[in-house]
Design a protein around this nucleic acid. Structure first.
Length: 869
RNA sequence: GCCCGGGUGGCGGAAUCGGUAGACGCAGCGGACUUAAAAUCCGUUGUCCGCAAGGACGUGGGGGUUCAAGUCCCCCCCCGGGCACCA
């Protein structure tokens, strides 16, 4: 079904961008020109932008940068005949809206709606090819019921658990934050101070997927830097767990090391202050010192324990470990440079080959034993300076002396393993994902907390079979155990209750803790129905006394799977129709900022893999191809910010120059991935370009410019240039090199201007090439060039290779590598032919006279270099 | 400290299987049109020497490989990003 062209869009003889843009935006909207088809037999192209958080401030210039890039690709792929899906949505849960609610008492939902409306209007004014019928909104109960559903799949698979753990508590925000939300020891949002606090938290077992998250990176077409960051985040290392005996205890001390080859260089051991054996291993004389030290360490934040720690601290425990090979006594120290949360929380210290141990040993005057020496034994080789952490061979290591350290690593591990004193192990820096927030404006957990007895009864009923984890999720508080029951799928969504105040409860709990009738309930575990606990218990065995979860999910939850929902946004039976999920698959291109390199992009990969394991999605990775757009800086080269007063508002630019000029300029500024400063003067260039294109194609009467002629035969030069232009723009567009594509179009426009006449076909091809970049003006021009369909539906121009063939090529003359003139020669000219011509050139002979020609290098089509002296 | 990315005219940036450095645009300068302005068009614009033709120099700095280096190799400086006691 082709949209019918009712009237000419506008009839202004001038480039009236305001009128043109609003006319065509209305046309696209009414005719759903940008909607994806449900044509399962057509090749699809799914292109995705990272959806925005609809803030009250509206769009800033950074949003249109990435979105223009994807819009160009979407329109280009559409012209290439693909069924294009390019959707947009709203990541609308989040703190700023909630804080606004605290301040004004206005429901966050209302604020979100206003902001979304504003964002949508702003985006539409930029002419983006979004399929607005597929909009998703993470705060819509019809959306977040599936966020909750996915959580229940994690729950069922034992990937969600509750733990009381030290977490980052931010007093100013009234909530805990994830590790990733802490930057330089302060909250990422607002830079408020954070402290460690023990709170009951939901945690997702992302570590269970560490290896797959690492391995599958290889198959992704992502920027290397982003892959590297994820790799570093996972932080895989291989080494060995080694068991040391203890001098006065039956217990053993297990440590993790990546350098078992340095085992003979151990001169002391270190336990983290929180290590379970600290108490037992502390001798009576050392008790006070150790206790004081442990207390001080506990009071320190991680920031103080790491970044601010200029000097190593520690205290001797009084005890000794037994070296597994030599049987020597090794003193055991307590020091907070060892982290309890990594490895076994204890290390063997080899000061000669570890910079941290070296620093510590120097400070506390502990012996340093070198066991690795540089392999280079040549005379001028420098002596091995300690600490030395590079390659080498073993020394002072008995039977292992002379072995390469890599080989020794294996041999020693093997030998320990045989004796039952150690084994090869792998460690990851990755920690489980702290998944709860003490906020109102987030997804409620679809969980009911019940007593142990009620849990057992509910399980025994069999009603929840297939929905429960193997091990119950449980926590104990004030001597009472609480067991987690999943809310049945049919009872989802569990919606947020209305509350009177959005202030945090101040107890470390969210504002939901105050919604008593929602929180304390009679609950039917089979149907999910509930009534407030203040009422009478309904009849029936399946009704239990239960409490809701007061935590809500973090903002990452909704963005973990939104790319799936666009495929089938209104489905009420499932995340999406399996057929549609299969047809659209995952995005062919995902564009967004590099700031999400390890957060959103990592969490989404995890959830996607769980959904893959669950059989919901057919692939194991969500984003196979990723591109990061850069950042647009203020005119002064600094980051745009209100306080610096260098913020550029897209609305203002559109008003003065139009959306097409803005789009073009954003792309012309430089490579899409680069960080580049905005320059208000520079936009004149792209504006002039569009005015020029308009003038060359539209006459003063508003009709087609008379230089455009259907019967005109273009010159060979014009033929070649338009085909070169098609070729270059096609290649550049595919590779997101929009800046050079635009220069190419400018070159063509300059040529067009110099012509007396041009063929209609060439003019049309040019308009088509420009259309993805500046769609409004091109629709208008396309119409005036006499087409009855929109340019959006015109097939992309083909390169006529025969027009690119040339019979003469340019050769540059060089003497001793320096430019000395140039000439056109037949393309099959030989070196001798070209040399003969070159020797006629005074600039060449001036350099060769009186010299002997030693050598001639001829690169056909490029250069002729005469070497003479 | 470690790991990446990057330094090219007055400015944004082109050009990297080694082959005319500075495409395209901005800003500047000169000119045309105009009563004037806007808009538009033409010319010019890396630096230095030269009336010119032309020559020398030139891609952060220093060395090297090559007939030829912005591009490859070694050392160093500066800017941006990431990680940061993970044993």
């Amino acid at each position: 079904m082709l949209p019918f062209f009712k009237t000419m869009a506008t009839n202004s003889p001038d480039y009236n961008f305001t009128e043109i843009e609003s006319t065509w935006q209305k046309y696209w909207e009414e005719n759903k020109t940008c909607a994806a088809e449900e044509a399962q037999d057509k090749e699809k192209y799914y292109i995705l932008d990272m959806f925005p958080y609809p803030s009250g401030a509206g769009l800033h210039i950074g949003h249109p940068e990435g979105y223009t890039g994807t819009d160009i690709l979407a329109r280009y792929q559409r012209a290439k005949g693909k069924n294009v899906l390019h959707p947009m949505g709203w990541d609308a849960f989040g703190l700023p809206t909630e804080q606004y609610a605290i301040k004004t008492g206005k429901h966050p939902k209302e604020t979100s709606e206003i902001n979304i409306k504003n964002f949508r209007a702003q985006l539409q004014k930029l002419g983006f090819y979004f399929d607005y019928d597929r909009e998703v909104n993470t705060t819509d109960p019809n959306y977040y019921r599936w966020t909750q559903w996915i959580f229940l799949q994690l729950f069922k698979r034992g990937l969600a658990y509750v733990d009381k753990r030290p977490v980052w508590w931010c007093e100013a925000l009234g909530t805990v934050l994830a590790n990733e939300e802490i930057v330089d020891g302060k909250s990422e949002r607002g830079a408020h101070p954070v402290v460690r606090k023990n709170l009951r938290q939901w945690v997702l077992k992302i570590t269970a997927y560490a290896e797959r998250l690492l391995e599958d990176l290889d198959e992704l077409d992502w920027p290397d830097s982003t892959k590297r960051m994820q790799k570093a985040w996972i932080g895989k290392s291989t080494g060995a767990n080694v068991t040391f005996g203890l001098e006065n205890s039956d217990e053993t001390l297990e440590i993790y090391t990546t350098r078992p080859d340095t085992l003979m260089g151990v001169s002391y051991m270190v336990l983290a202050p929180e290590h379970a054996l600290v108490e037992e291993l502390t001798t009576a004389e050392q008790k006070d010192a150790v206790q004081t030290y442990a207390n001080t360490a506990a009071a320190k934040s991680d920031l103080e324990r790491t970044e601010l720690a200029k000097e190593k601290t520690g205290v001797f425990s009084g005890s000794y470990a037994i070296h597994p090979i030599t049987g020597n006594r090794v003193p055991i120290w307590i020091a907070d440079y060892v982290l309890v949360s990594y490895g076994t929380g204890a290390i063997m210290a080899v000061p000669a080959h570890d910079t941290r141990d070296h620093e510590f040993a120097t400070q506390f005057e502990i012996p340093i034993v070198q066991v690795i020496e540089k392999a280079d034994k040549s005379a001028d080789a420098e002596a091995t300076e300690l600490p030395y952490t590079g390659d080498g061979v073993l020394v002072n290591s008995g039977e292992y002396d002379g072995l390469d350290w890599q080989v020794a690593k294996e041999k020693i591990t093997e030998s320990l393993s045989t004796e039952g004193k150690g084994k090869a192990t792998t460690q990851y820096k990755l920690r489980d994902w702290l998944f709860s927030r003490q906020r109102y404006w987030g997804e409620p957990f679809p969980i009911a907390w019940v007593t142990k007895e009620d849990y057992i009864a509910a399980v025994a009923s069999g009603d929840l079979a297939g929905h429960l984890p193997d091990e119950p999720v449980v926590y104990t508080e004030e001597g009472v155990s609480h067991y987690a029951l999943p809310i049945p799928t049919k009872a989802l969504p569990l919606t947020l209750p209305d509350v009177e105040s959005y202030e945090p409860a101040g107890t470390g709990e969210s504002p939901l803790a105050k919604a008593t009738d929602w929180l304390e309930i009679w609950y039917n575990y089979e149907s999910g129905e509930y009534v407030p606990a203040s009422q009478d218990k309904p009849e029936g065995e399946k009704w239990l006394r239960a409490s809701r979860e007061t935590n809500t999910m973090p903002q990452w939850a909704g963005s973990c799977w939104y790319y799936l929902r666009y495929v089938d946004p209104t489905n009420s039976e499932a995340i999406g129709d399996p057929e549609k999920l299969k047809y659209w698959g995952v995005p062919d291109m995902y564009v967004g900022g590099a700031e999400h390199a390890v957060l959103h992009l990592f969490y989404a990969r995890f959830w996607h893999k769980v959904l893959f394991d669950e059989g919901v999605v057919p692939t194991s990775e969500p984003f196979t191809k990723l591109f990061h757009q850069g950042i647009i800086l203020g005119e002064n080269g600094q980051k745009m910010s209100k306080s610096l007063g260098n913020v550029v508002n897209p609305d203002d630019i559109i008003k003065d120059y139009g959306a097409d000029t803005l789009r073009l300029y954003l792309m012309f500024l430089g490579p899409l991935e680069a960080m580049k400063p905005w320059n208000t003067k520079g936009i004149e260039g792209t504006f002039r370009f569009l005015k020029k294109v308009w003038r060359e194609l539209v006459g003063q009467d508003g009709q087609l410019n008379e230089k455009v002629n259907a019967d005109f035969a273009d010159s060979k030069e014009t033929d070649r240039l338009i085909n070169e232009t098609i070729k270059k723009i096609t290649e550049d567009t595919e590779n997101l090199r929009f800046n050079t594509a635009i220069s190419t179009m400018m070159i063509f426009a300059n040529h067009l201007q110099s012509l007396e006449s041009v063929s209609l076909n060439t003019a049309k091809s040019f308009v088509q090439l420009l259309a993805p970049f500046a769609p409004h003006i091109c629709e208008e021009l396309w119409k005036r060039l006499g087409s009855d369909k929109t340019v959006t539906q015109a097939p992309w121009p083909q390169v006529d290779e025969s027009k690119l063939v040339v019979d003469e090529i340019k050769v540059v003359f060089q003497v001793n590598g320096k430019f000395r003139g140039q000439t056109m020669v037949a393309k099959d000219a030989t070196q001798d032919d070209v040399l003969a011509i070159a020797m006629q050139e005074p600039r060449v002979t001036a350099q060769t006279d009186g010299k002997t020609i030693r050598k001639v290098i001829y690169v056909p089509g490029k250069i002729l270099n005469i070497v003479a002296n």
